[in-house]
């Protein structure tokens, strides 16, 4: 299964530059320095997993990528568009990036189908029929076509998160951002969401995923990034993080020990 059109894959291969480029990004909440000199490049089709202790700035960082948060220093260039105050740039970048939240954030007054079809209709000016047909296709891909007419309140957490993924995909984004997509789920539902994400990764989607699911990182990630206190402390391929015999930064080691213990 391919979530992205094959023709786009060819296009991606020709893509020389990174699809996300962050250079010296700094952000403050008032006096509080959340992000410190973050520099990161993500190549097209790359899957980057961001890990790190709670409060280390992971959410803030990926929310800067689609401008849900504003950064104060440095540059962020997404798909060749630089993030600035220009409203049109922001709108364009948001159309290119889908985001999935920890709390799903589905629209409770709309059915699953309407949730997915809303943005294509309003932003991309698709006709209702077209948008709903496409939405149905996406719901089929995430495995819940039979829930299309239900309201979010009638769905399980796992089903809601899959609708949320379908909703983000409906805008045909080139990048998907995931902020702890499985943290609010009961254990038996985590797998169904991770499976969808794995398929997505295999289809060539560029993904930045904040997660503590180490199994997922090991299997899918091209690169793992460890953040602490607003800084990228360590990055490398998953094998680097999960092999016992390499030397890590002490903070990384501490974090890994904790996380791997709980496995």
């Amino acid at each position: 299964m391919a979530v992205q059109a094959p023709s786009q894959k060819v296009a991606v291969e020709q893509y020389e530059e990174a699809i996300i480029q962050c250079q010296g990004v700094n952000k403050w909440y008032g006096e509080f320095h959340v992000l410190k000199d973050i520099s990161l490049e993500v190549a097209p089709q790359e899957v980057v997993v961001v890990i790190g202790p709670s409060g280390s700035g992971k959410s803030t960082f990926i929310r800067c990528i689609n401008r849900l948060e504003e950064h104060q220093e440095g540059t962020i260039i997404v798909d060749g568009i630089e993030l600035s105050h220009d409203v049109r740039n922001i709108a364009e970048i948001r159309r290119e990036t889908g985001m999935v939240f920890q709390q799903f954030n589905l629209f409770p007054h709309l059915t699953a189908l309407e949730n997915v079809a809303l943005a294509p209709m309003k932003v991309r000016h698709r006709s209702r029929q077209e948008a709903e047909a496409r939405a149905m296709e996406l719901l089929t891909r995430v495995g819940i076509p039979e829930q299309a007419k239900k309201y979010p309140g009638q769905l399980s957490g796992g089903q809601q998160q899959r609708v949320a993924i379908a909703r983000a995909l409906a805008m045909e984004p080139r990048i998907m951002l995931f902020d702890e997509p499985t943290s609010a789920l009961d254990p038996e539902m985590i797998k169904e969401v991770l499976d969808v994400m794995k398929q997505l990764a295999r289809s060539g989607m560029t993904m930045v995923v904040v997660t503590h699911e180490m199994g997922f990182a090991r299997e899918v990630a091209d690169r793992v990034i460890f953040m602490d206190h607003g800084r990228i402390v360590e990055q490398g391929p998953p094998e680097h993080f999960f092999s016992k015999d390499v030397e890590h930064h002490p903070r990384t080691q501490e974090f890994l020990d904790q996380i791997l213990l709980s496995f």
């Binding site: 709108a91 939240f101 709390q103 954030n105 809303l118 943005a119 949320a164 909703r167 805008m171």
Partner: peptide, 17 residues
């Protein structure tokens, strides 16, 4: 909840929509 607005924005909907 604020998440509703964020979800809408993240989909690229302009504020009035």
């Amino acid at each position: 909840p604020g998440g509703q607005q964020e979800a809408g924005k993240a989909l690229g909907l302009p504020e009035w929509q």
